[in-house]
Amino acid sequence: MSDALLVLADVTVQRGGRAVAEGINLSAPAGEVTTILGPNGAGKSSTAAAIAGLARVSAGSVKVAGTDITNRRPERVRAAGVSVVPEGRRLLTDLSVEDNLKVASFSLGKVAAAEGLAYALSLFPELEKRWKVGGRLLSGGEQQMVVLAQALVSKPKVLVVDELSLGLAPVVVKRLVPVLTEVASSGVAVLLIEQFAHIALSLATGAYVLESGRVRYSGTAKELSDNPELLHSAYLLRD
């Protein structure tokens, strides 16, 4: 896995004086979807926050294409080519779709911004109709599209998506899934964090299972699909 774009080595994240993720080792290679699975409270989102620069990494390192981005500020992480979509569809609700995307391309040059916008809209043409609508008035699916589009505007090397499917109708999820595959096949390392394993395993190549802040399984998505008991043990056997 030496060609992995995103590499987390022994990453520990503390919140409220307690380690919520401890000694996380994982890597996401370019051109593939890698998934992190795990029950609620396993430390998945803390790991995403640590990559994004929102949570402090107290030990270990986060590297992107060999560059150490551990504990960089969020905007610097983004500048290093890592886009993180946090859980809960956190778009800018007071701003229109247009402004949401413009803000996301703020740090880019004029040409790159225009290209990025065109790219994002080619993935989500539906957004063009809602161009001037405020973020608050969008449906859940549309909000998820805006958030994904915001992440992709900067043409990242690494895309981290925390909970793609949570709270969305199956038909919407079905619409979004091909986008991730497409993005990955264009050479992006996609890290998909999901509580529900079904969709994630159908997309992913590499897979990790987190439980109580530790990696309980690391291997291939195929092995996990073939041996569901591996997954079940992580979800059920809490110590």
Binding site: Q14, R15, G16, G17, L54, A55
Partner: peptide, 9 residues
């Protein structure tokens, strides 16, 4: 102090 206690973000 709040950051240390993890009360902020």
């Amino acid at each position: 102090a709040m950051e240390k206690k993890g009360l902020l973000g």
